[in-house]
């Protein structure tokens, strides 16, 4: 689905105007505190803002907020957990288990207390949580920041697979090579302005 943002303004600055074709990717870089996460949150409608965002020409206002967020899914750099154990976070356990080997995760992790997971395991499990919604657009905030090169490569493989099936991707990353591997257009966010690189 085609995502178009027009005149997007908010705490991250702006106005931001960009569009993303199905399966395309955008990588956003910029110094800490520049508003990269806020920009993703604005697209996901988690933070108040001005301007419009459409999906295949349909204005966001016609979607309920939960319906929009299922289609345009945001994954925070430090994702939250709301149960003590991992399992209740994955109502569709069979599908979650099917995705785990591809991210080098042992399905046993689904029956563990969340606090026993490593940061990298949490990040990959949170990615699976988002992928289970089959979103049209993925908004990822440094998804591989806490991962080793092998796990990073596995995450990128899954993202490329999703892109091939039409999922668009906006990723905040400090890794220029990652942007290239994902075939992403690069943008730099600083002082409230998004500049193509």
């Amino acid at each position: 689905m085609r995502l178009v943002a027009s005149g997007l303004t908010g705490a991250a600055g702006g106005p931001f105007d960009f569009s993303l074709q199905p399966g395309a990717a955008m990588a956003i870089t910029g110094p800490s505190g520049a508003g990269k996460s806020v920009l993703l949150r604005m697209i996901a409608d988690l933070d108040p803002h001005g301007g419009t965002v459409t999906l295949d020409g349909a204005d966001r206002a016609i979607f309920t907020a939960p319906a929009w967020r299922k289609r345009v899914a945001y994954l925070a750099a430090e994702p939250g957990w709301w149960h003590d154990d991992t399992a209740p976070h994955f109502p569709d356990r069979a599908r979650a288990e099917a995705l785990m080997p591809g991210l080098a995760l042992d399905p046993k992790l689904l029956v563990q207390p969340v606090h026993r997971l490593s940061t990298g395991e949490r990040m990959r499990l949170a990615l699976i949580r988002v992928l289970l919604n089959d979103p049209a657009v993925l908004l990822l905030d440094e998804p591989t920041g806490a991962l080793d090169p092998h796990a990073t490569s596995l995450v990128e493989t899954i993202l490329l697979e999703r892109q091939r099936t039409g999922t668009a991707l906006i990723i905040v990353t400090h890794d220029m090579d990652q942007a290239a591997r994902l075939g992403a257009r690069r943008f730099h966010l600083e002082a409230g302005t998004l500049t193509p690189q």
């Binding site: 996901a44 988690l46 907020a65 939960p66 319906a67 967020r69 299922k70 899914a73 945001y74 994954l75 925070a76 994702p79 939250g80 957990w81 709301w82 949170a126 949580r129 988002v130 919604n133």
Partner: peptide
Amino acid sequence: IEAQLALG
């Protein structure tokens, strides 16, 4: 809370 909101 926000992780849940982000999941719809």
